[in-house]
């Protein structure tokens, strides 16, 4: 092989390396907010593809995930996938349930309590600014604060992320951007 050809090949390989280095998105699709991702138990064959789809569906709320644990059961045709993601600024996790079928993810349930303390406290403050809520929750202890995804929110308000502040028997649906209570639910069945 001629020297010129060898140099050309070396330069091409070098150039390709630089190109890949300058385009990190193609070499690493994991978002910055997921510090660690771990599959629990046996990984399915298409774990990488599922993980890529999952990470598109589970962005955290005003925080970053320290650990995202993924577990699966079922067969290739219909696989049930559970995700539990934890953060450093909340003692409660975000939990998602999906079904993976025909190369698509379907969200079947979620319980999202990884709300940073600051946002959690703000949501409670907004809820307590509603006179109906504040007079109903005396001595009710600390409420739960859960994130409600736009797909659910649109049935009650607008398709946007809302927060649900819930004491036993009463709950306030909060729009954190507008800092207002958009609906109140009571166990007796009344919704205003």
């Amino acid at each position: 092989m001629k020297l010129g050809t060898i140099i050309t090949i070396i330069l091409l390989i070098f150039g390709l390396g630089i190109g890949l280095a300058l385009d990190p998105e193609k070499s690493n699709t994991r978002p910055e907010w997921a510090h660690n991702v771990q599959w629990l138990g046996e990984q399915p064959d298409n774990a990488a593809k599922i993980e890529e789809l999952l990470l598109l569906e589970i962005p955290p709320y005003k925080t970053e995930y320290e650990m995202v644990n993924i577990s699966s059961n079922g067969d290739v045709k219909e696989m049930h996938i559970s995700v539990m993601a934890t953060t450093l600024d909340s003692s409660n996790p975000d939990i998602y349930d999906f079904v993976y079928e025909n190369n698509e993810l379907l969200l079947t349930g979620y319980l999202l309590e990884a709300v940073p303390v600051r946002n959690r406290n703000e949501a409670i403050t907004i809820a307590l600014n509603d006179p109906d809520v504040s007079t109903s929750v005396r001595n009710s202890g600390a409420p739960s604060v859960k994130r409600i995804l736009p797909g659910t929110s649109q049935k009650f308000y607008l398709p946007k992320t809302l927060l649900s502040v819930t004491w036993k028997g009463i709950s306030a649906l909060i729009d954190p951007d507008e800092r207002k209570v958009v609906q109140v639910w009571k166990e007796s069945g009344t919704v205003k």
């Binding site: 939990i95 349930d97 349930g109 979620y110 319980l111 859960k146 409600i148 995804l149 659910t152 929110s153 049935k155 009650f156 809302l162 649900s164 819930t166 709950s171 649906l173 609906q183 639910w185 919704v191």
Partner: peptide
């Protein structure tokens, strides 16, 4: 549970 939390049913 409030209707907007029904998606957490079963979890």
């Amino acid at each position: 549970m409030p209707p907007w939390e029904l998606d957490s049913k079963g979890i």
